[in-house]
Amino acid sequence: MTQTAKERPLRADAERTVRNILEVAERVLAEDPTAGLGQIAAAAGVARTTVHRRFASREALIDAMAAHAFRQVEEAIDIGRPETAPPMVALHQITANVIQVKSGWRYAVGQPRLTDPDAVAAHDRIFTKCHRLLERAQQAGLLRSGVDLGWARRVYHALIEQAIIESAQSGEGAESGEGDADPDALASLVVDTLLGGLGPKG
């Protein structure tokens, strides 16, 4: 067996370990933003030294979480084919995808200031792709021709954030018969509200 063949399982195992730490850290920090690396390591079922080997500090871990989360958001956008799908189809699918992904990474994507270069780059690409999607929607007549797309984008993002809050509160809503955490249903609410407010005047 070659050295490369021996190393591959180790690399895959290391990737799984890192992914597990990031996912557990999101859950722990969402519940307790003051939690330290020791608490995260315990929740992830790994030694504290394992976390320290991969992340030099708590801040480095949060940076890695943000980079990972924004890469997933970008992938969710790309899956919706923002450049090739019919604008209405792309808008709905991308909205549902983003709600689903961001609902699982609320702490990471909610950081007030991004410092990791990968996270910043992914965040910038996401904004560019969102702007292009709304531009295509405007060209298709879904948005009024005079609507400021920068404003439309901010409204769209605010609606998505509200849908994510709705999703987070759906546990209580489900018990009382109210609310719906289904990303497709929430996406429909977001898109209907966006287009109803900014669509062509009848």
Rank of each mutant, 00 (worst) to 15 (best):
Q3L: 15
A5M: 10
K6S: 10
P9E: 03
A12V: 13
E15I: 01
E15M: 08
L22V: 07
E23P: 00
R27N: 06
V28Y: 03
V28P: 02
V28W: 03
E31I: 00
T34D: 11
A35H: 08
G36N: 15
L37K: 00
L37C: 00
I40Q: 02
A43G: 04
G45H: 11
T50F: 04
H52Q: 12
R53F: 09
A56C: 00
A60C: 07
A64N: 04
A67L: 04
H68Y: 15
F70W: 14
V73P: 01
V73H: 05
V73W: 02
D78P: 00
G80N: 06
G80V: 06
E83A: 15
P86M: 01
P87I: 04
P87H: 05
M88A: 13
L91F: 08
Q93E: 15
V101E: 04
K102A: 13
G104V: 03
Q111M: 13
D118R: 14
A119D: 06
A119Y: 05
A121Y: 05
R125S: 07
R125K: 12
R125W: 01
T128N: 08
K129L: 15
R132E: 15
E135W: 07
A137P: 04
A140Q: 07
L143E: 01
R144M: 11
R144W: 07
G150P: 08
E161M: 11
Q162T: 13
I165Y: 12
E166P: 02
G171N: 08
E172W: 13
E172Q: 13
G177C: 06
E178I: 14
A181C: 09
P183I: 09
V190R: 07
V190W: 04
T193E: 06
T193W: 04
L194C: 07
L195R: 11
G196F: 03
G196C: 07
G196I: 05
K201R: 15
K201L: 13
